[in-house]
């Protein structure tokens, strides 16, 4: 049984179908990439997984439990954290307050402090800017904060939506390095990316979304060398 099992998931925006029945699975410890063009339904998929959008039909199971109808604020306590597209840090709060909100559902002070140390070791820059208001951080720093905040919930799986969007190449490399580190610490990763090349380099397996359906899937290394994928998504 996979850690996350999605079966025939359908989502509509009004009368327009956004997801037309997709199925995929994420095994424990895997890094899974979800790639595809704009409007393919990648973000919709993540939003439906964490309850920000309601599914029209289909099933989402996490560690054997049906979470299809679980509201967003109860998902994080089950061990699923979501780093939303566009980062969505709390702009008027400090870096520290943002990180503490990541641990909102947790009570054990000692564990939270240990977790904070772990996040600071991944992102030394966040420690430097601990007292700075999040809205004044650069895009790359905000992305780090959003990832750090998600890690503060001590998740089993972390969903990342376009972490490299709008970042300079140096930051992109740094962000992907950290995704690798997080994964090596045993956190499962579901990664949505437009930067397909980067995503496929880091992922174990990948699914390709095309206008609401999964068109291709397989080992990331194979997709990286697949001619059709190279033409469509890698610009080669």
């Amino acid at each position: 049984m996979a850690m996350l099992q999605v079966t025939d998931l359908k989502v509509n925006y009004g009368v327009i179908p956004a997801l037309k029945g997709i199925s995929f699975e994420v095994g424990e410890g895997e890094v899974i990439a979800l790639i595809g063009a704009n409007g393919a339904g990648k973000t919709t998929t993540l939003h439906t997984l964490t309850g920000l959008i309601q599914a029209a039909s289909g099933k989402i199971e996490f560690e054997g439990k049906d979470i299809t109808r679980v509201p967003a604020h109860k998902i994080v306590t089950m061990g699923m954290a979501h780093v939303p597209e566009g980062r969505h840090v709390f702009p008027d709060m400090t870096v520290y307050q943002n990180l503490m909100l990541g641990a909102f559902t947790r009570r054990d002070r000692a564990e939270i402090d240990a977790n904070l140390e772990m996040v600071y070791s991944h992102f030394p820059r966040l420690k430097e800017r601990e007292k700075q208001v999040a809205g004044t951080l650069s895009g790359g720093e905000q992305q780090m904060l959003a990832m750090g905040r998600a890690l503060m919930s001590n998740p089993k799986i972390i969903l990342m939506d376009e972490p490299s969007m709008g970042l300079s190449p140096i930051y992109v490399n740094e962000i992907f390095d950290i995704i690798g580190k997080v994964s090596s610490e045993g956190v499962t990763v579901l990664l949505v990316e437009q930067n397909a090349k980067k995503a496929l380099t880091i992922a174990d397996r990948a699914y390709v979304l095309e206008t609401g359906t999964i068109s291709t899937s397989g080992r990331a290394a194979d997709l990286l060398h697949d001619d059709a994928i190279r033409k469509a998504y890698l610009g080669e």
Binding site: G51, V76, A81, V89, F90, D92, M93, T105
Partner: peptide
């Protein structure tokens, strides 16, 4: 803090478990 978070970004607040 939950109130502050909701006033700044509702969707993000719910992702925090609020």
């Amino acid at each position: 803090q939950a109130m502050l978070a909701c006033s700044q970004d509702r969707a993000a607040a719910s992702l925090m478990g609020i």
